[in-house]
């Protein structure tokens, strides 16, 4: 029934998660489990690739919020790349581009990882 899946890749010490399908309240636990696994393996540089992500609901967005703080505390970052316009719009509405590095291409995201850049957060 689930039409959501997560693929794992590695590139230069960055853990890349490829999201496929629709991320909503029902499928959010799968992404949570994937992120949990990354943290357990000590990987804190995580790139979410949304090339094949067709839909995201607010519950899906909640997953990113739930983990980003811990990841940044550990010195890593959670970046998002290659979102489809419709999905990006949902991120954008809530102001996620202010909280996360959301980049058009994976290469740019990896570059930012390499340079160690993170979004400026006045509150943190």
């Amino acid at each position: 029934m689930s039409n959501f899946s997560v693929g794992f890749r590695q590139h230069n010490g960055v853990q890349i998660l490829d999201l496929h399908g629709e991320l909503d309240a029902h499928t959010a636990p799968e992404l949570e489990a994937a992120l949990q696994k990354c943290l357990q393996n000590g990987q804190y540089n995580i790139l979410i690739n949304g090339r094949d992500l067709d839909y995201i609901s607010s519950a899906g967005l909640g997953v990113f919020m739930a983990y980003v703080e811990e990841i940044r505390e550990k010195g890593g970052d959670l970046k998002i790349a290659e979102l489809k316009p419709g999905v990006y719009n949902v991120f954008d509405l809530l102001g996620f581009p202010l909280l996360f590095d959301i980049l058009p291409s994976e290469a740019e995201a990896l570059e930012r990882f390499a340079r160690g850049e993170r979004p400026m957060l006045p509150s943190s």
Binding site: L94, L99, S123
Partner: peptide, 10 residues
């Protein structure tokens, strides 16, 4: 920004 995402400044 959505409510509850950021501590306040941003």
């Amino acid at each position: 920004l959505g409510l509850g995402l950021d501590r306040g400044e941003l």
